[in-house]
């Protein structure tokens, strides 16, 4: 009989203790306070409105037209803002990098100037034919959203080497527009989505300018309707909040997934994590 070699069992792999993530009690406390701060008003609002109010929000008079106007304004504002800000931001990055600080200062002005002042000024100089149309409001929203759009685009352009990519594209025969469309925009897709989220969120929630321009946008409708039926009005507010939140989550998840496919990082509103690379 052949000798049977005994084989010793391999030694068990040493158990490597995973460092436990410490989450001390004070952090839980802060989290709890923040949660209460945000969720308590929501709970109070839902309690006040009653669940039955949510079912009848969409059937209220003026709901559809106000929401449609806000959506149209969102789209028009997005188109104008993108047409203005994308080429400008790319141009500043490429040709006038020294002006970036100035651009940041200029684009922050709409935040520091109160909307009331802005509207009164605009109404003084705008032709009468434009004053009574929603298009004027769209133009005002372009100014309002400019700081946010600029910062989102700026963050995206900082995450890529715009100059080298543009020159590489140019040396291969691509003109300026082709380079913008095929090389730059696809690589700042996440920043474009961030800008889109911010623009739509701002436009869908803006009240002061719309009210002073006498346009019944969705937020204005909510306030007006509040005088008739406060419960429905609160339900509409929560409805708008949930829809906007879902919309933002959806875009963030999709953008992060697309970004990771081409080596980009997680998408947040004002920053795009740098691309991953492997060594030499």
């Amino acid at each position: 009989m052949a000798a049977v070699a005994t084989q010793t069992a391999p030694a068990p792999a040493p158990i490597v203790a995973r460092p436990r993530r410490s989450f001390p009690a004070w952090r839980w406390a802060i989290l709890l306070i923040a949660a209460v701060y945000f969720l308590l008003p929501l709970y109070a609002a839902i309690r006040f409105a009653g669940l039955h109010a949510f079912g009848s929000v969409v059937t209220q008079p003026g709901f559809g037209s106000a929401l449609w106007l806000s959506l149209r304004l969102g789209v028009v504002t997005w188109v104008i803002t993108m047409l203005l800000m994308v080429p400008t931001t790319v141009y500043v990055h490429l040709r006038l990098p020294r002006l970036r600080r100035l651009m940041e200062t200029i684009t922050i002005l709409p935040i520091v100037i109160p909307p009331v002042v802005l509207i009164i000024g605009v109404l003084q100089v705008m032709p009468l034919s434009l004053r009574s149309t929603p298009w004027l409001l769209a133009l005002e929203y372009v100014i309002l959203t400019m700081p946010f759009a600029y910062r989102a685009l700026d963050a995206g352009l900082r995450s890529i080497d715009v100059k080298t990519l543009t020159e590489a594209s140019g040396s291969l025969g691509a003109g300026w527009l082709t380079t913008l469309w095929r090389v730059i925009l696809p690589n700042i897709r996440t920043a474009l989505l961030s800008a889109t989220i911010l623009i739509l969120a701002l436009v869908l929630g803006e009240f002061t300018m719309a009210s002073l321009d006498l346009q019944t946008t969705f937020p204005v409708w909510i306030v007006l309707f509040d005088q008739e039926n406060a419960q429905i009005s609160v339900a509409a507010s929560i409805f708008a909040l949930v829809v906007t939140w879902l919309f933002l989550m959806l875009i963030t998840v999709v953008a992060t997934r697309q970004s990771r496919r081409t080596g980009g990082g997680e998408v947040t509103l004002f920053s795009v994590a740098p691309r991953e690379t492997i060594g030499n």
């Binding site: 080298t164 020159e167 590489a168």
Partner: peptide
Amino acid sequence: PASKRDMGMVFQSYSLFPN
């Protein structure tokens, strides 16, 4: 212009289009 010169260029920094 550069786009009409028919010159191929390899850059110092990685210049491939990431997308």
